[in-house]
């Protein structure tokens, strides 16, 4: 910026008036343009989150408005020593690990296919994108009715007779299928963005040096696209950990399929237990922060270079 060099060259009080005004004006315009977005984010995201931390310190239920006493950390203690919390954490973790790892493998294969396919490339890219836009609840209903023994075709097609939603792991399997169908496009597009950065020359050089397909993948391709892999895995993992819609639609949390978000919802909205529910929300947020922290440590990447969360 020209203002900077002028400011360095001339003593402060002698700085040309016009230039000083320009910098000031720019600063003011910058703030004014950012103000609406910043105000909304502070008022409707950051403030409520701080409020949630505050609420979690009180015994508070909307049904008994008078019984609003300071609870200290006892809400957290109630949550953490309840086996239900731990069941829900394990359910959520299992779903997260299963969906994200399957999505990563399929998504990577799909990105590869979208890059290399000679025929059908356009249709492939367009059609694969559709699940990304489909409402999560709709996806959940489609898969639920497909697996449901009374309405669905899955049992008929495979000649089996399974009551999918009556057992924990089979129900979680269907929930995972719906999630994978819905979010693999997002994963594969982020990976495709990274894959494009890997130049064919480098691949060729590795091949000439005698690297096999597996070595080229793990020693050349993946390290070069590390940034895209991090972004894809990080955002999908954080997103998977807050899974709510599919569980609500498919099982309503029955047969130990409840997730942490669903537990928070039940306490906050169904039971209007704002104190206890907020404690669960804060713990959930802490889990998500921990996931982000682990990923960034693991990949040793500069956070400020991360990209658009979708």
């Amino acid at each position: 910026m020209s203002t900077v060099s002028t400011a360095e060259a001339a003593p402060r009080h002698k700085k040309p008036r016009g230039q000083l005004d320009h910098a000031q004006r720019m600063r003011r315009t910058g703030w004014m343009l950012s103000a609406p977005a910043v105000a909304i984010m502070i008022l409707v995201a950051i403030a409520p989150l701080v409020d949630a931390v505050w609420l979690s310190l009180f015994h508070k239920r909307l049904t008994t408005p008078d019984a609003n006493s300071f609870a200290g950390l006892s809400n957290y203690w109630v949550v953490l020593k309840d086996p239900l919390w731990w069941t829900d954490v394990w359910t959520t973790l299992a779903l997260t690990v299963a969906t994200v790892s399957v999505e990563f493998v399929i998504g990577f294969g799909l990105a590869h296919l979208m890059q290399r396919a000679l025929h059908l490339r356009r249709s492939l890219r367009t059609i694969v994108l559709i699940p990304y836009g489909i409402v999560t609840v709709v996806s959940a209903y489609a898969w639920r009715y497909a697996f449901d023994p009374s309405t669905g075709f899955v049992n008929d097609w495979f000649g089996i007779d399974i009551a999918w939603f009556d057992h924990r792991w089979s129900a979680l399997f269907v929930i995972a299928v719906s999630e994978i169908w819905k979010t693999t496009p997002f994963m594969s597009l982020l990976l495709l963005g990274g894959l494009i950065q890997v130049s064919p020359d480098v691949q060729e050089a590795a091949r000439v040096d005698g690297a096999g397909p597996w070595q080229r993948l793990t020693r050349v391709t993946l390290p070069i696209m590390k940034q895209a892999v991090l972004v894809a895995l990080l955002f999908r993992t954080m997103d998977a950990f807050r899974i709510f819609d599919a569980v609500f639609v498919m099982t309503g949390g029955a047969n130990d399929t409840e997730t942490v978000s669903f537990l928070a919802y039940r306490q906050l909205v169904s039971r209007t237990a704002l104190g206890l529910g907020s404690a669960i929300s804060v713990l959930l947020f802490a889990c998500v922060l921990l996931i982000a922290f682990l990923f960034i440590k693991l990949f040793r990447t500069d956070v400020s270079k991360l990209g658009s969360p979708t």
């Binding site: 315009t29 910043v38 989150l49 609420l55 955002f235 906050l268």
Partner: peptide
């Protein structure tokens, strides 16, 4: 434009993207 707080806006926005939406439902409710 050059103005103080640019980096803070970008990082703040990134942090909000990580919020589990259910976490703010209680207070908003």
């Amino acid at each position: 434009m050059e103005f103080p707080g640019k980096r803070l806006i970008l990082l703040g926005a990134l942090a909000i993207a990580m919020f589990p939406t259910i976490a703010v439902v209680g207070p908003l409710f």
